[in-house]
Amino acid sequence: MKRTFLGEFEEVVLLTVAILGEEAYGVTVTQELEQKTGRSVGFSTVHTTLQRMEEKGLLSSKMGGATAERGGRRKRFFTVTAFGRKALQEVKQVREELWNALPPQTLQLMGG
């Protein structure tokens, strides 16, 4: 299979979903991102990205039970699929290969 190109934001969202595990849905992912990255993330952007990645098969989702808060509306929980995990692995591997290929003096210059 040809490699999947993950966008930077997609990669971050996918990772966040993986981090959150059972609890990953629109709100938690947005808040977690905000807190972990410190940047202001639009809810609509996260929502759309989640939808898109589900369509691509990187995520799967299922509806949770009815909730008492938020007017009884159910939550859609996301989990990373096998394909999604593979995509993350690949991204990580590429990064590591690139870091490893960095000449040591440049690495030093960057203060690494």
Partner: peptide, 16 residues
């Protein structure tokens, strides 16, 4: 298709 959770999520976000 996603109206229900979107609405719920937005309400939660609003509170947040």
């Amino acid at each position: 298709d996603t109206l229900e959770e979107t609405e719920g999520d937005l309400l939660e976000m609003y509170a947040y």
